[in-house]
């Protein structure tokens, strides 16, 4: 139990670090030095010390948005196993809770955005929800495939199940699911080619534009939620990929963290080499994830 709590706290501390890795990777490709690895921590601490300004047109939903979102992703984090070890909370069917918690976080972010009455935020909210329509089923079906493979319906069960490691048997399925989850991962974390986290152009943003009016502590919550969300989806990918290893707990933890850092590097490389998709073509890209997940599900049910 103490070990699990320690792991949970470790994740809380580590997750913003991965953004530093992404930025450093991008800086490397751009021939720049890049911001410090710990930049997101500095930003969060800076924002936590600031006050927030609220527009008179906003209501309580605007304030609730970041708080509910952060609470939802933190609760989802309780369900996520770490390096093959079961999570703090785990029960049969918790994958459904996991997905709905993420849905709740999105719902409140969108509500807060709409609450401002700004046309930019309205556009961002509309785009976010439109894309979620493709991403959520893909995520759901991918997890369903994993449930089929392992016979387990809890996240901890799936990722500690020995059958996951038999790459030979489930090789094509796992590759399909990895593909689907990687696209979901890029979309959910607003990365290129779906969204551009670094753009300053309000008209092209998706996630960033929804949080334009938040400041201070609220914005710190949003940034931290983004870090946690990155970890949540990263765990799904790295968890599946690393399941082949069986080794001691300490080694497994180190390998897992290295895996997450490698994932951040891969995201950095993707962002450095690809351009953003035309907004109307983003659904095409997301449908690929859905298609991969469906194919995997069909194969798993034969």
């Amino acid at each position: 139990m103490y070990l699990k709590i320690a792991q949970f706290i470790l994740i809380l501390i580590l997750s913003p670090f991965l953004f530093g890795v992404i930025n450093r990777t991008k800086a490397f490709f751009a021939g720049r030095k890049g911001s410090p690895l710990l930049q997101l921590y500095y930003d969060i601490f800076k924002l936590l010390r600031k006050g927030a300004v609220y527009s008179t047109t906003t209501s309580k939903f605007f304030i609730a948005g970041p708080i509910v979102s952060l609470s939802a992703v933190l609760t989802a984090l309780l369900l996520i196993p770490f390096a093959g070890q079961p999570a703090l909370i785990s029960f049969d069917g918790d994958i459904v809770l996991f997905i709905y918690l993420l849905g709740l976080a999105r719902f409140f972010t969108v509500l807060a955005a709409l609450d401002t009455g700004s046309s930019f935020e309205g556009m961002g909210a509309s785009r976010e929800v439109q894309f979620a329509m493709f991403v959520e089923p893909a995520l759901f079906l991918s997890l369903a495939v994993l449930t089929r493979i392992t016979g387990q319906s809890s996240l901890s069960g799936i990722f500690s199940n020995a059958r996951m490691s038999s790459w030979v048997t489930y090789d094509p399925l796992i590759i399909l699911v990895l593909g689907a989850l990687f696209i979901v991962f890029l979309a959910e974390n607003s990365r290129i080619p779906v969204d551009d986290p670094n753009t300053h152009l309000e008209l092209t943003m998706i996630h960033e534009v929804m949080v334009l009016d938040h400041g201070g502590v609220d914005f710190a919550y949003i940034m931290y939620s983004a870090g946690i969300k990155f970890w949540l989806f990263g765990t799904l990918l790295v968890g599946i990929f690393l399941k082949g290893y069986s080794c001691g707990q300490v080694t497994a933890s180190v390998v897992f963290i290295l895996g997450m850092i490698l994932l951040a590097v891969i995201v950095g490389i993707v962002e450095s080499t690809l351009a953003r998709l035309r907004l109307l073509k983003v659904p095409h890209f997301l449908i690929v994830a859905l298609a991969l997940a469906i194919v995997a599900l069909i194969i798993s049910m034969r």
């Binding site: 991008k26 490709f29 751009a30 021939g31 720049r32 290129i192 080619p193 551009d196 670094n198 753009t199 152009l201 092209t204 962002e271 450095s272 080499t273 690809l274 351009a275 953003r276």
Partner: peptide
Amino acid sequence: LANDVGYLPTAAY
């Protein structure tokens, strides 16, 4: 232009 479509290499150089 490269920056506006999120294409890092050309934008940076």
